Simulated scan of single mutants.
Amino acid sequence: MITYVNATLDDLPFIVEVYNSTIASRQVTADLQPVSVESRIAWFEQHNSQKRPLWLIKYQNQPCGWVSLSSFYGRPAYDKTVEISLYIHQDFRGKKIGQTAVREIESFAKQVGIDAILSYVFGHNVPSIKLFEKMHYQQWALLPNIAELDGIKRDLVILGKRFD
Score class of each variant (00 low, 15 high):
1 M>L: 12
1 M>D: 11
2 I>T: 13
4 Y>K: 10
6 N>W: 06
6 N>Q: 14
7 A>T: 10
8 T>L: 06
8 T>P: 06
9 L>N: 08
9 L>K: 14
12 L>F: 00
15 I>Y: 09
17 E>M: 10
17 E>R: 10
20 N>A: 00
21 S>P: 05
24 A>V: 07
27 Q>W: 12
28 V>W: 11
28 V>P: 02
31 D>I: 09
31 D>W: 01
33 Q>W: 05
34 P>I: 07
34 P>N: 05
35 V>I: 14
35 V>N: 05
37 V>E: 08
38 E>R: 10
39 S>F: 07
39 S>W: 11
41 I>L: 12
44 F>S: 00
46 Q>K: 14
47 H>E: 05
47 H>I: 08
48 N>G: 15
49 S>V: 09
49 S>N: 14
49 S>M: 11
52 R>C: 09
52 R>V: 02
53 P>S: 11
53 P>D: 13
56 L>W: 08
59 Y>I: 04
62 Q>I: 13
62 Q>G: 01
65 G>W: 00
66 W>R: 08
66 W>P: 07
68 S>I: 05
69 L>H: 01
70 S>I: 10
73 Y>W: 10
73 Y>D: 11
74 G>F: 03
75 R>C: 01
75 R>T: 00
76 P>I: 04
78 Y>K: 02
78 Y>M: 03
78 Y>L: 02
80 K>E: 14
80 K>H: 13
82 V>Q: 12
85 S>Q: 00
87 Y>H: 05
87 Y>C: 01
88 I>Q: 00
89 H>W: 04
90 Q>P: 01
92 F>D: 09
92 F>I: 12
93 R>E: 06
93 R>D: 02
95 K>Y: 12
95 K>H: 14
95 K>M: 12
96 K>E: 09
97 I>D: 02
97 I>L: 03
99 Q>Y: 05
100 T>E: 12
101 A>V: 14
102 V>K: 03
102 V>T: 03
106 E>R: 06
108 F>M: 02
109 A>M: 01
111 Q>A: 15
112 V>P: 10
114 I>H: 00
115 D>H: 13
116 A>E: 03
117 I>W: 10
119 S>H: 07
120 Y>H: 09
123 G>N: 08
125 N>K: 06
128 S>D: 10
128 S>V: 08
129 I>E: 04
129 I>V: 14
131 L>S: 05
132 F>D: 04
133 E>V: 04
134 K>Y: 07
134 K>E: 14
134 K>I: 04
134 K>G: 15
135 M>A: 10
135 M>N: 08
136 H>D: 12
137 Y>C: 08
138 Q>W: 05
139 Q>S: 07
140 W>P: 00
140 W>S: 00
141 A>G: 15
141 A>F: 06
144 P>S: 08
144 P>K: 03
144 P>L: 10
145 N>C: 09
145 N>F: 06
145 N>L: 13
147 A>M: 07
148 E>T: 15
149 L>F: 12
150 D>C: 07
151 G>K: 02
154 R>W: 00
155 D>L: 08
161 K>H: 00
164 D>L: 12
